[in-house]
Design a protein around this nucleic acid. Sequence first.
DNA 1: TATTGTTATACTCTATAACTATA
DNA 2: TATAGTTATAGAGTATAACAATA
Lengths: 146, 146
Amino acid sequence: MSRLDSHVGYWLRCVANQFSHALNRELEDKGVTLTEWIALRELYDTDMRSSALAERLGMTRGAVSKLARKLASNLMITQQASAGGSRAQMLSLTDDGRAVVRVFAVILDQADQEFFGHLEPDTRALIVAILRDIVRRRGLRAVPAD
Amino acid sequence: MSRLDSHVGYWLRCVANQFSHALNRELEDKGVTLTEWIALRELYDTDMRSSALAERLGMTRGAVSKLARKLASNLMITQQASAGGSRAQMLSLTDDGRAVVRVFAVILDQADQEFFGHLEPDTRALIVAILRDIVRRRGLRAVPAD
DNA sequence: TATTGTTATACTCTATAACTATA
DNA sequence: TATAGTTATAGAGTATAACAATA
């Protein structure tokens, strides 16, 4: 019977878990979860409806509703009703939220550097290309928030 | 500000998550969680105390106690008191448990093949070597059960 | 006294599904 | 009617910490 550690997936999960945990430790200090940060990061590039964010994160509308309420209560985002008293809402980062995203972007850059910075550029590029290709083959469903 | 997907860690987490989810889907059908299977797989190679298993899996003794009770109730493992009426117990796979591990080992082989089988042997070896090295640098704490 | 295992409790995260409000 | 968002509920999984038993 094959050993667990004879699989590529085993080592991939080891490193991915260590990477996630390292990020989580950083984020915990600031009272933000990984999921919350990814949501904020998505909203940095473009305002989004709650349902669109749910789609991006691979979560249910209910889960995102709760997430959005927490982020709004922390003054990270606003939930603005569309014009005309519509119930549909647009999620937008506040200035505070945008600042937080920038801070965490630096933390992410540093974490990536710590884990993978020692690799030759060619090697890095090769690995990213391979992983990208696997994601493409299998179809990316959502940003990995878990 | 850098994009999420400019990081190696991002793509690593994408693929690792897809891999974990693919495994979970297979395991769900059989009523076993990923954590349970990894526990069983650890016990296949050697009997272990509950506390040693907790150490291996990076879980608390309480969590493993619950896990062991479930596995024992499913007749996958036995919790044998050591000789002399000691309270310390040894966790051992039953014949059923050993059979289950062998079935899932095949499923894992197949999943790894599906995800990474298309890579050239050299490429596979390179990736494993790099990941292994990163784990070594950072110190492997536990088998990735989450 | 230190270690091992169990238990009770609580917490976090999420899904499900029923519900409300809108188009 | 279909869609968007909310809420209540429940379940999984785990940590914490108090506890019991043992060495």
